[in-house]
Structure formats: structure tokens, C-alpha cells
Amino acid sequence: MDVAEQIANGLDNDMEADGNQFLTFLLAGEEYGVDILRVQEIKGWNAATPIPNTPDYIRGVINLRGTIVPIVDLRRRFGLEPMEYGPMTVVIVLKVLHGDKSRVMGVVVDAVSDVYNVQEDALKPAPDFGSVVNVDFVKGLATVEETMVIILDIDHLLNSGELAVMAGALAE
């Protein structure tokens, strides 16, 4: 574990005492939140190089200052109606943890919304919809100013399905 990560984790722990900060974004009218400490940067959409034989929600890879970063379209990932990419389309670059390894990935969202403080105990577990909706990726639901924010578990979300990595592969 590198120093930055330790600090980040340390911050993480501190935050849990008096609430975490979440960056929220819009996706088909709903507001979703991710832990702000995982957000590396927010950038506009640039054409990605598609990777053959991968599901359509993996839009391809981009060059992020010399690093190859895969881009995931969250609309398609959630099975929502895909949208044309435009000047407002935003890519949130996130750090995803998998075991003790971390990866950098970008997610395409409709727009970035706000930053909220949410107390850990104010998070309500997502109700179980059975097989209708997979709520594994949902860490919990938060209510901010009367609106519902869906807090995502990005480690789970971006390590599942086709994005899953065998432990061995990451260990090179």
C-alpha cells in the first residue's frame, strides 16, 4: 500500500466519524453518489478507442496522461437507454480497489451534480427487489434535501461481470 493510499484510508476512517462526502452525478434523471475520495478527476468526453470483443458498456480505452484507462458507460451498464454523447457528457475518473490493488477507470455519466455530506448512519439499505433489479452495486440510499441519492459501491460495480479481473491477472 502506498503512502497516498494510506492517507486516503486514514481520511476515510476520519470521515466515517462525521459523515462521508459524496460526489453526485445524474443518470437518466436519478442522482447517484460516489465516495469523493475515490474521484481522481472529472473530464469531458473524448473519443475512446474501442476494445474488440467486450460488452457494449465498455466504451474503450483512453489516454489519460500516458496511462491507458478503460471507460465504462454507466447508462449502458445499468441497461438504461443509451444517450448521444455531447459537450455536456462527463467522464468521472475513479480509483477502484480490488483486493490490495487499485485500478483507474472512467465512468461516463450525464452530468455532475453536487457534493454532499452524508452521515454513515443516515444511509438506508436499498430494499431488495429480488431479481428485478440488481442492488448489489448500491451501498445505500441517502436523502438529501428531500431527494433520494443512490450511493454506489464502485468497487463492486466496476469489478463485476466483464470487468472482473482474476486475482492472478492483476498481480501480473
Binding site: 470483443n53 467486450t54 500516458g66 496511462t67 491507458i68 478503460p70 470487468l163 491477472a169
Partner: peptide, 14 residues
């Protein structure tokens, strides 16, 4: 050469 595996995974044929 940049690795695809650093942030993604091994893709067959690449």
C-alpha cells in the same frame, strides 16, 4: 507498449 492489464484486463488477441 502500455499494458492494458494495469487498469483493465487481458483481452484475447491483444
Amino acid at each position: 507498449i502500455k499494458s492494458l492489464e494495469t487498469n483493465f484486463k487481458k483481452v484475447e488477441g491483444l
